[in-house]
Design a protein around this nucleic acid. Structure first.
Lengths: 238, 238
DNA sequence: TCGGCGATAATGTCTAGACATAAAATCGGT
DNA sequence: ACCGATTTTATGTCTAGACATTATCGCCGA
């Protein structure tokens, strides 16, 4: 309050309000930089910067000679936060426990496309485990970790702390890719979750890299009614 | 090839390469605008714009007096793009068709929590339909639209164009909330999709608002092996 | 040693121009 | 009527400054 917005931001906010208020519909051609320059009494670079920022945010499209038009959104984008399972449990007020059910050091399986997507060859550690909520099984996890990138993993027990939690806290990463899909439970997984074979489940897969080197791949399986993902978005970064 | 990058973009690309190549680790303080200005032989505004773009992309953080430092990437958040179904079909090279199977104008059902989450009362239009890929059913959709916010919807047939596509192109919105979960197919939906009852499916729900007023709620159901969502996070948006 | 306070160094915002580039619009010839 | 060359126009990029803002550092006094 009291602090006036810098002119550039005010121009941007004004235009954003016109668009979000529906006064300027998709396809509407907005005033040229010259007109805005005159209207606001400022240099062309100032309105240009405001319009470019709106273009970066996806609210408008700019084409030479054609001018600047309100963008027609082609998709909904949202910032999805994929929480650490231990944090989900804490938020729900349930007791959390990770149980390691399998552990092996081996070479990359060239028949597995999920492993190949992470790295071409080398040694890795393969882990399997269950996430418990109170006394029931909440999720299943299968993971491989590159020993070339994370040699410390070989001496880590992963018995009390889930490997995902440990990795997040110890290993820096630069790129991650997530895949979210639904699937039917295979017999073995159904038994572990205490559900009928073929039940619906949500599957979350994540590949993580540091630069070009693959660090880990994980596949988490949740019973259909146990877990969902919520994503919120306001365009323009509000 | 052969077209030289504008200087500003080249500066940005150079710095990005230093960061992604690991030569400038998180926390590293990069050269000041003055140093870069001398190094590249350009005006300060040019390096400033490049650095600001990197800051917008989340690769660096800028603080007055302290300078510009390489940012530490945040934990598992990713930009999820939820595409318009017609665009998915176009990308896959399949023929797309929307079929409207139900349409009614009625008041908000106070027993439906999904409708209550959108608005307290008022008239709405309820739609049901199927998204076809080539000759098979790709997804089911149920939607309600607020007639107070979107009176044009009453005279819109929604026979050729899916309501989502129409809304996205005509109605501005300021906030959206998505929920992603797995579910078992109810008898009616299973019949529509041509699958056994109880099959796994991915369910996507979306609530959309303009300011505080609810515009629409939609629930889309996909067969498990038909559709998945990919979310990428790489700082800088590559 | 600690706290405050001013100098300084860095980015933030802006101006008034210049030239480059791309695409729509127009004009001219067939 | 159509196609191609030219003009026009709006944005893209850049310069060389100016002043504003603010966090940090170092100094000085209690």
């Amino acid at each position: 309050m009291g602090v006036p917005l810098p002119l550039g931001r005010r121009i941007r906010a004004d235009i954003e309000a016109q668009i979000k208020g529906g006064h300027w519909p998709p396809g509407y051609r907005l005033p040229t930089e010259q007109e805005l320059q005159t209207r606001y009494g400022c240099a062309r670079a100032t309105v240009g910067k405001a319009l470019s920022a709106l273009a970066d945010a996806g609210l408008v499209e700019r084409r030479k000679k054609a001018g600047t038009i309100v963008a027609t959104p082609r998709a909904h984008t949202a910032v999805l936060t994929i929480p650490d399972i231990a944090e989900v449990m804490a938020a729900r007020g349930q007791a959390y426990r990770f149980e390691l059910t399998g552990r092996a050091v081996r070479a990359v399986d060239p028949a597995s496309s999920n492993e190949r997507a992470l790295m071409a060859h080398g040694a890795m550690i393969a882990l399997a485990g269950m996430h418990h909520a109170d006394s029931s099984v909440f999720a299943l996890e299968r993971r491989v970790i590159s020993l070339a990138q994370v040699p410390e993993a070989e001496s880590e027990p992963f018995v009390r702390q889930a490997p995902g939690t440990w990795l997040l806290q110890h290993i820096p990463w630069t790129r991650a890719r997530h895949r979210i899909c639904a699937a039917s439970l295979a017999a073995e997984d159904a038994r572990a979750l205490g559900l009928p074979e073929g039940s619906a489940c949500l599957r979350l897969e994540r590949w993580t890299w540091r630069e070009l080197a693959g660090i880990t791949y994980v596949e988490q399986t949740f019973a259909a009614d146990q877990f969902d993902l919520i994503a919120e978005f306001s365009p323009g970064g509000v």
